[in-house]
Computed example of a mutant assay.
Amino acid sequence: MDWLQVVVLSVVQGLTEFLPISSSAHLILVPVLTEWNDQGLVFDVAMHLGSLAAVVLYFRHDLKRMGASWALSLRGRSLRGGSVDPDARLAWWVLLATIPVCVVGFAFHDVIEVGMRSPILIGITLIGFGLLLGYADWHKRGGRSEYQLTLRDAMLIGLAQALALIPGTSRSGITITAALLLGMSREGAARFSFLLSIPVTALAAGLEIVGLVQMPRGIDWPAMGVGVILSGVSAYLCIHYFIAFIKRIGMQPFVIYRIVLGLWLLWIFG
Rank of each mutant, 00 (worst) to 15 (best):
Y236E: 08
G173V: 11
I174L: 09
C102I: 15
I268W: 15
A190L: 04
K140F: 06
G227K: 01
I256V: 15
D2R: 07
I198E: 00
Q161G: 09
L182D: 04
A136G: 09
L207I: 10
G143K: 11
K140G: 01
A244Q: 08
I249D: 01
F43T: 05
R75N: 12
A68N: 10
L57C: 14
P86A: 13
G183Q: 11
Q5R: 02
G142K: 04
L72V: 03
D2T: 13
I166R: 04
Q148I: 08
D62C: 11
L63W: 13
L90W: 10
P100F: 09
V200F: 12
W264K: 01
K247T: 14
W93C: 01
G40R: 04
L163N: 04
D2H: 14
E146N: 05
V114H: 12
L163W: 13
L151Q: 02
V11T: 11
A25F: 05
G206K: 09
D220T: 04
E113V: 15
S193C: 05
I120T: 15
T125Y: 11
L29I: 03
L57N: 03
R258D: 03
P20K: 03
L265E: 03
A91V: 05
L74C: 13
Q5P: 00
L181D: 12
L33T: 06
Q148M: 12
P119Q: 07
E146D: 13
S172R: 01
W3P: 01
L132P: 04
M116F: 15
Y135E: 00
L203D: 02
G270T: 09
G183F: 14
I229M: 07
V94K: 02
W267L: 11
A71H: 10
G183T: 13
R60A: 14
T98H: 01
G115P: 00
R60M: 11
G50R: 07
G40F: 07
K247S: 15
V101S: 13
Q214H: 11
L266A: 09
G130R: 06
S197A: 15
P100A: 06
Q39R: 03
E35C: 04
F43G: 10
G143Q: 12
L163S: 10
G227M: 02
T177L: 03
A71M: 13
A244K: 13
V260F: 14
I246C: 08
F192N: 00
C238K: 05
M47E: 11
A235H: 08
L15M: 10
G50T: 07
I28R: 09
R152V: 07
I243K: 07
Q252R: 14
L79P: 00
L181N: 12
